Simulated scan of single mutants.
Amino acid sequence: MHSTNGGFALAVAIVGLVVLQQLRARPVRRIGSLVAPVIFAVLGVAGLAFGVLSVVKDRPLTMLPIALLVVSFVVATGFGAARARTVRVWRDPQGVVLRKGTAATTALWLTSVCAHIGLGLWIDHAAGTGLLGTASLYAYVAFGLGTQNLLLRGRAAATDG
């Protein structure tokens, strides 16, 4: 994610699309459910590289921002697990397993994004320079969405049918 308003707006739009997509009833797919987290992971690696470079150009990267970054990914994983429990999973009359997010899913997404903003600001403050926390949004989404989708795949496999 870039430090420009355009980069921030793009990130908000992408995360918004992810949330909206989750409110639609759609099939649970073995591979398809991992495509978005992998894309976010690739973007996340690029964002983290940008973030690290934005810090180390002015000063060494210390352990506190790194530890906070790890904490943020643990938080993202926790939110992903919580969201997975709020998604409806059922088998339609044709035997297709479907999923659909609920209002609670949306609330947890919004809370998760707010948590990332707070943690990101803390990471950037701890780093003293640069945009490591801000640039970690895509990696944060990859951890949370990946966890959510893996747990949903497990629930889908456990449905009667």
Rank of each mutant, 00 (worst) to 15 (best):
Ala115Gly: 02
Met63Asn: 12
Val56Leu: 05
Arg88Asn: 10
Val141Asp: 03
Thr62Val: 07
Ala158Met: 04
Gly95Phe: 07
Leu53Met: 13
Leu110Pro: 04
Leu121Lys: 14
His125Ala: 15
Pro65Thr: 06
Leu108Met: 05
Val74Asp: 06
Tyr140Ala: 04
Thr102Tyr: 05
Thr4Lys: 04
Ile31Cys: 05
Gly154Glu: 08
Asp160Gly: 12
Ser33Phe: 12
Gly95Trp: 06
Gly144Phe: 04
Leu17Arg: 09
Thr147Phe: 07
Gly118Asn: 07
Ile31Ser: 10
Val55Trp: 03
Val97Met: 01
Ser3Thr: 14
His116Leu: 05
Leu132His: 07
Phe8Val: 12
Ser112Glu: 11
His2Cys: 08
Gly32Ile: 02
Leu108Tyr: 04
Val18Gly: 13
Ala13Cys: 08
Val113Trp: 02
Ile123Gln: 06
Thr159Val: 15
Arg29Thr: 15
Ala127Cys: 09
Gly6Lys: 11
Ala115Cys: 06
Leu131Cys: 09
Ala115Phe: 08
Ala9Leu: 14
Ile31Thr: 14
Ala9Ile: 10
Ala156Arg: 00
Val55Arg: 05
Leu119Met: 07
Thr129Glu: 12
Leu48Asn: 11
Leu137Glu: 08
Gly128Thr: 09
Gly6His: 10
Leu64Val: 15
Ala41Pro: 07
Phe8Tyr: 12
Ala156Gly: 01
Gln22Arg: 11
Gly144Cys: 05
Ser112Gln: 11
Gly161Asn: 00
Val15Tyr: 03
Ile39Asn: 03
Leu110Lys: 01
Ser54Glu: 00
Ala67Lys: 04
Leu131Thr: 15
Asn149Ile: 09
Val45His: 05
Thr129Pro: 06
His2Asn: 12
Ala46Pro: 02
Val70Leu: 14
Val113Thr: 12
Trp109Leu: 01
Leu145Gly: 05
Tyr140Met: 01
Arg88His: 13
Trp90Glu: 08
Ser54Met: 05
Leu152Cys: 07
Thr106Phe: 06
Leu132Ile: 08
Gly146Arg: 00
Val38Gly: 12
Phe73Cys: 12
Thr111Leu: 15
Phe79Cys: 06
Ser54Thr: 10
Arg83Gly: 06
Gly133Asp: 02
Ala81Phe: 10
Gly44Arg: 00
Thr4Leu: 11
Thr105Ile: 07
Val35Gly: 08
Cys114Gln: 09
Ala67Leu: 15
